[in-house]
């Protein structure tokens, strides 16, 4: 009997949702990126590629590299901090694991903006950290963390950490512990077991976790805006300022278009790497 492929109501709802709220807006932005703009900021319906050409000005290339550097280093730090957490959770059992997972997600019960403001009050000049350091006499004047790249970096790290923990945790959870014992049995040390047996078998989880945080970090706007004090220009707030401050929609759209293209290529590359990895490993 041939099974008919009928879309269930849930799938249908999801597809319509995706079409209305993701696909169509994205296509509109793409369309806008090929339009021109009058000096007053009105859209002119004349096709042009000049918006894209402007993107390659050194000024914007520098913003791109600055953003890549920030997102890259924050992703790496997320991995370094998140991996031990995931490892601990995967190896613990029962209530300890439950508690760990709950603690990991409790911050999400608080609004995102509030959490970012939380960081502000923590690292600000009159914040808890500086107060403590001043009182203890370690420093004589407050550390300027807020409104610097470090502040943005801390904000990214704090907000994205759980997203790197979860995929690594689930990969580690699926990892067969007998493999670890087999490695010990064959003479591998703990470090060798980790590098030669554990890591190769959970690399997909690590990769997915990295992309989970790296991609949204590239387009992040709220954190650089609030913690960078609009002094630090990254791709996210560059785009927003083109739309709302400079009234240059086509240029903002072109940046968004290029960023999307870059992300799509990254994902395709990762997929390809994963498949060839499976064949030749």
């Amino acid at each position: 009997m041939k099974r008919k492929t009928v879309l269930g109501p849930a799938t249908l709802f999801f597809l319509i949702w995706l079409l209305l709220l993701t696909a169509i807006p994205a296509l509109l932005i793409l369309a806008v990126s090929f339009l021109s703009r009058s000096p007053q900021g009105e859209l002119l319906y004349e096709a042009t590629l000049s918006n894209y050409a402007r993107c390659f000005h050194w000024l914007y290339i520098r913003v791109l590299f600055k953003t890549l550097g920030l997102a890259g280093s924050a992703t790496l730090t997320c991995l370094l901090v998140g991996f031990p957490v995931a490892y601990f959770l995967a190896r613990s059992a029962g209530w300890l694991r439950q508690l760990g997972l709950i603690l990991l997600f409790i911050p999400f019960w608080t609004n995102f903006i509030l959490r970012v403001y939380g960081i502000v009050s923590l690292v600000g000049n009159h914040g808890l950290l500086n107060q403590l350091l001043l009182k203890s006499g370690l420093i004589s004047e407050p550390l300027q963390i807020l409104y610097t790249p470090i502040g943005v970096y801390l904000g990214l790290l704090y907000n994205y950490l759980p997203f790197v923990v979860v995929p690594i945790f689930s990969a580690l959870e699926k990892f067969d512990n007998a493999l670890r014992e087999a490695a010990y049995d064959l003479g591998a040390s703990r470090i060798q077991t980790f590098l030669r047996v554990v890591l190769p078998n959970i690399k997909e989880g690590v990769l997915i976790g990295s992309l989970f945080v790296f991609i949204p970090m590239l387009g992040e706007y709220v954190i650089p805006d609030l913690l960078g004090g609009a002094k630090q220009i990254y791709l996210g707030n560059l785009m927003v300022s083109q739309f709302f401050t400079a009234q240059d929609w086509p240029f903002g759209a072109a940046i968004a278009g290029l960023l999307s293209l870059f992300l799509i290529l990254t994902i395709l590359l990762q997929n390809k790497w994963q498949k060839t990895g499976v064949q030749h490993a």
């Binding site: 067969d176 007998a178 087999a182 490695a183 049995d185 064959l186 003479g187 047996v197």
Partner: peptide, 16 residues
């Protein structure tokens, strides 16, 4: 385990 000159064939083989 590996210093014993004893090796194990695991139940589900545990091949890498």
């Amino acid at each position: 385990p590996h210093k014993r000159n004893i090796h194990t064939v695991f139940q589900r083989y545990a091949l890498f």
